[in-house]
């Protein structure tokens, strides 16, 4: 589903991605680890169709993400690090608004079901988002992606701001989505969460994929050592 082949991207003269090759199939979760500036966000923005590669190809479901951006975006659910919602709307109204923009009309009960599945307590559904914590906003953001019933999920530090319980709920939800056949790419700094959730893990350094391994091949400690080794190199 997600297929990046030999992609290169530079900003002015600074290389952001160098000969990147990635593949995430249906039902698979790939975790991308890397320090700030390693190229995680550039990879996600190319997959979202906001950036075109200088060379190489970036495809989702055989479609060029930049040239066929509108079609590709219909397949994507995206969860950013900071979900900024409309503060004057409730969580449910925000979810309803973003769903309607995607052409999806859900009943109140369905919207509440999405929010509850994504871990937002029912008494918060009708409260204005201006009263939400960052974690609560993040949950609504997850619900927006989830309600889209996407085939591909792109997550940029999705657990940022979530408490351990909510973070665990997210892990459960991602596994459920993968089991339903979604392809998921998750960029994160959180080594332990990535190892726990993802099937495969890639380590990005200075725009290049320096290591790719299956999560069952390494323990959390080994992964941390590996990560630090590549970061210091």
């Amino acid at each position: 589903m997600i297929d990046i082949q030999n992609a290169n991207k530079s900003f002015k003269d600074t290389p952001a991605l160098q000969s990147l090759n990635l593949h995430v199939g249906a039902g698979e979760i790939l975790g991308l680890l890397g320090a700030n500036g390693a190229g995680k966000s550039t990879t996600i923005n190319m997959l979202l169709g906001f950036l075109a590669p200088d060379s190489g190809s970036v495809k989702i479901n055989e479609k060029d993400t930049f040239k066929q951006a509108r079609e590709v975006r219909q397949l994507i659910g995206y969860i950013p690090e900071n979900v900024n919602l409309y503060p004057y709307l409730s969580g449910m109204e925000n979810l309803d608004y973003f769903c309607r923009l995607a052409g999806l009309k859900y009943s109140k009960a369905e919207l509440q079901e999405f929010l509850s599945t994504c871990g937002l307590q029912s008494d918060a559904h009708l409260k204005k988002v201006s009263d939400y914590s960052k974690g609560m906003r993040q949950k609504v953001g997850i619900a927006i992606a989830y309600a889209k019933k996407a085939k591909v999920y792109l997550l940029d530090e999705p657990a940022s701001g979530l408490d351990p319980l909510a973070s665990n709920d997210l892990s459960v939800l991602l596994k459920k989505l993968a089991n339903e056949g979604a392809a998921i790419l998750m960029a994160s700094h959180d080594i332990f969460r990535v190892r726990e959730v993802c099937h495969r893990i890639g380590i990005l350094n200075q725009g290049a994929l320096v290591k790719e391994l299956r999560s069952e091949e390494v323990s959390a400690n080994e992964l941390e050592q590996l990560y630090l080794k590549y970061m210091t190199n």
Partner: peptide, 13 residues
């Protein structure tokens, strides 16, 4: 600035 523009466009606006 709030990052909503990205989300709006991704949702189909």
């Amino acid at each position: 600035r709030s990052g909503r523009l990205k989300l709006l466009v991704l949702q189909g606006a």
